[in-house]
Amino acid sequence: MSRSTPLSNRIENWLPRLVLAPSLLVVLVAVYLFICWTGWISLSSSMIVPKYDFVGLNQYVRLWSTPRWHTAVFNLFVFSTLFLALTTGLGLLMAILLDQKIRVEGTLRAIFLYPMALSFIVTGTAWKWILNPALGVQKVVNDLGWTSFVFDWIAQPTFAIYCVVIAAVWQSTGFAMAIFLAGLRGIDNSVIKAAQIEGASLPRIYRTIVVPMLRPAFLSVIVLLSYIAIKSFDLILALTNTGPGSATEMPSTFMYSATFRRDQMGVGAASAMMMLMTVAAIIVPYLYSELKESRDGH
C-alpha cells in the first residue's frame, strides 16, 4: 500500500505532461525549429538546394528590389484591410440582425456558416466561374436584357484583387457572424432593457453598449481573420492563379514561386521571414494589450 500510492500519484502528476509531450514536440520541431531554419536560409546564398553559408542581408536586398514583391506587399495590404473590415463589419451586422429573435434562425445560421465548411480551392473555383464575364454574373445580367452591363473585374489587373476580397469575404463572414452571435448571446438582456427604459434608441444601444461589450469576440475574429488573410494562398491559386499577369500576387504565392519554381530559395526564405515579422508586428502588440487588460480585470 505504502509503495503503490506514491506510484499512482506520480503517474497522475506526470500524465498531463506525458499527454501533452508529443504535440509539444511536434510544434517545437515543425514550427519553431523550421522558423529558425528558414531564418538561417534567408541569410545564406541558397538557390535550388539549401546551402549553409552566410551572405548577410543580401537576399533581403534582392527581395526588396524585386517589383513583383512590391506588388505582393501592396496586394496583401489592400486585401487584408478590405477583408478584415468587410468580414468583421458584415459578420457583426448579420449577427445583430440574427439576434433579433427571428424565425428560422437555426436554418439561416447554418446557411451563413456553410461556406466555412468549403475549402478555399472550392470557393476559388466556384467564384472563378461566377466572376467570369462569359459564364457568370455578367452573362446572367446580359441574358436578362441589360446587354450593356459589364462586370469583368477578374480580367482587369487593377480590379482583380477585389475579386479575391469578394470570394474571401463570402467564405469567412458566416464564421465571424457565428463568433459575434455567441458573444451577443452572452450579454445580459436586462442591460439592453435598462438602456431602453432610459430612452436610448436601438442603434445607439448597440453602438455605445453592446458592441463595446463584444471586445473578446473582436479579439478572436481579428486574430483568426488576420491569419487567414496572411496565409491566403490556395484561394489565389484557384481563383486567379496570381493573374492577370502578376496582378494578384501575394507574399505567400511569391514565396512559393521563388522557392519552388524559380530556384531562389534564399529570396523565398527572406520573404517568409518578412511575412513572419509583419504578422508579429501586428498581432503581438494587439494580443499583449488585450491579454494585459483582461489580467488586470478590465
Binding site: 445580459d188 436586462s190 442591460v191 438602456a195 431602453q196 427604459i197
Partner: peptide, 21 residues
C-alpha cells in the same frame, strides 16, 4: 407608450450596469 415615455426608472436583479462604462 414606449418605456422611455412612461417616466419610470427600473432596477434589475442582475443590476444591468453597462460593463464597459
Amino acid at each position: 407608450l414606449s418605456p422611455k415615455d412612461r417616466d419610470i426608472a427600473m432596477v434589475f436583479q442582475s443590476y444591468a450596469l453597462y460593463p464597459t462604462m
